[in-house]
Amino acid sequence: MRTLAWNARGLGGPRAIHILQNLKREMDPEIMFLMETKLGVQALERIRIKLGYLGKLVVESVGRSGGLCLFWSDRICADLISFSRFHIDVKITSSESKLLRFDWLLWQSRFNTTGPFVDVVTEEGPPRQRRLIEEFREAVDDCELMDIGFRGPGFTWSNRRDGSAMVQERLDRGFQYLLWHQMFPNSFVQHLGYWKSDHRPILVEILTASDQYLVVGERRRRRFHFEACWADCEECDVLASSS
């Protein structure tokens, strides 16, 4: 199973839609989570149709700020647990009858660094921002989470400047519980390229011990029986048809 997450910094305009269509075509994620959409329900419904996803859950932006959106394909069943302006928590059942729980979190605190890079989990950062970094670490520790790790470039955010003015950070990442890691030990996060946003999209590939490592970008075709996944899931059916 693949899930793609991207802090898009706004989805208005044809360029952003074109980028999403390319990501959908090349990565084929069953789940797509978008942060800072800066859009309302109707605009995101049009994007859902263009991308060909079955269902969506939208947390609308406040004016031109924020906004979350979760799309999912007909290969999975999504059961909403909770949501807010800063997170979406769902239970996922895949077409292979794998039951997963995902919590997509938008960490709102910005770490405006002055050095060449900052890893917000392992680096201290400037003094005035140590409290924010420590709060992030405490949240990770309290939830007993482990970083999944990643492949690709080392950082997921850049101020897109040249030379000594460049700042890079690893702000976007995936975490897992120990039990989750034991169930899906070959899973990994792939850092993708920069497009419109100053954040890279990240792709989470969920693999069990028996799964083979898959090449990012390789299209996979799987059989899926819609009735088997959705027939007994009333809430999922409501989510899929909501707008």
Rank of each mutant, 00 (worst) to 15 (best):
1 M>R: 05
4 L>N: 04
6 W>K: 07
6 W>V: 02
7 N>F: 05
8 A>R: 01
11 L>N: 02
11 L>A: 03
12 G>I: 01
13 G>S: 09
14 P>K: 14
16 A>D: 03
16 A>V: 03
18 H>I: 03
19 I>H: 15
19 I>C: 09
21 Q>D: 03
22 N>T: 02
23 L>Y: 03
24 K>L: 01
24 K>M: 09
25 R>N: 11
26 E>W: 02
27 M>F: 02
32 M>C: 14
34 L>F: 05
39 L>M: 15
39 L>I: 01
40 G>H: 09
40 G>D: 13
43 A>I: 00
43 A>G: 04
44 L>N: 04
45 E>H: 08
47 I>H: 07
49 I>A: 04
49 I>T: 11
50 K>A: 15
51 L>C: 10
54 L>F: 02
54 L>E: 13
55 G>K: 04
58 V>N: 07
58 V>E: 05
60 E>H: 01
61 S>H: 08
62 V>R: 12
63 G>P: 02
64 R>V: 10
64 R>H: 10
64 R>T: 09
70 L>H: 07
72 W>V: 08
73 S>F: 02
75 R>L: 15
77 C>N: 09
78 A>I: 15
81 I>D: 12
84 S>C: 10
89 D>C: 07
90 V>E: 08
93 T>F: 05
95 S>V: 05
95 S>A: 11
97 S>V: 04
98 K>M: 13
100 L>F: 14
101 R>S: 10
102 F>K: 00
102 F>A: 05
103 D>E: 08
105 L>N: 07
106 L>T: 01
107 W>S: 00
107 W>F: 14
108 Q>E: 14
109 S>L: 10
110 R>V: 12
111 F>E: 03
114 T>V: 12
115 G>Y: 02
119 D>W: 06
121 V>C: 08
128 R>C: 14
130 R>L: 09
131 R>T: 07
133 I>G: 02
136 F>W: 01
141 D>R: 06
141 D>E: 09
143 C>P: 00
144 E>L: 11
144 E>S: 14
145 L>P: 00
145 L>M: 10
145 L>V: 03
146 M>H: 09
148 I>L: 15
151 R>N: 10
153 P>V: 06
153 P>N: 05
154 G>L: 11
155 F>L: 08
157 W>F: 10
158 S>C: 11
159 N>A: 07
159 N>F: 08
163 G>H: 06
163 G>N: 09
163 G>D: 06
167 V>T: 12
169 E>D: 05
171 L>C: 06
178 L>M: 11
182 Q>N: 15
186 N>H: 08
189 V>E: 08
192 L>D: 06
193 G>D: 15
193 G>W: 06
194 Y>K: 04
196 K>C: 10
198 D>H: 07
200 R>I: 08
201 P>Q: 13
203 L>I: 08
205 E>Q: 10
208 T>Q: 11
211 D>A: 06
212 Q>Y: 03
214 L>F: 00
218 E>V: 04
221 R>S: 13
225 H>C: 15
227 E>W: 11
228 A>K: 14
228 A>G: 13
230 W>A: 13
231 A>T: 12
241 S>F: 06
242 S>Q: 14
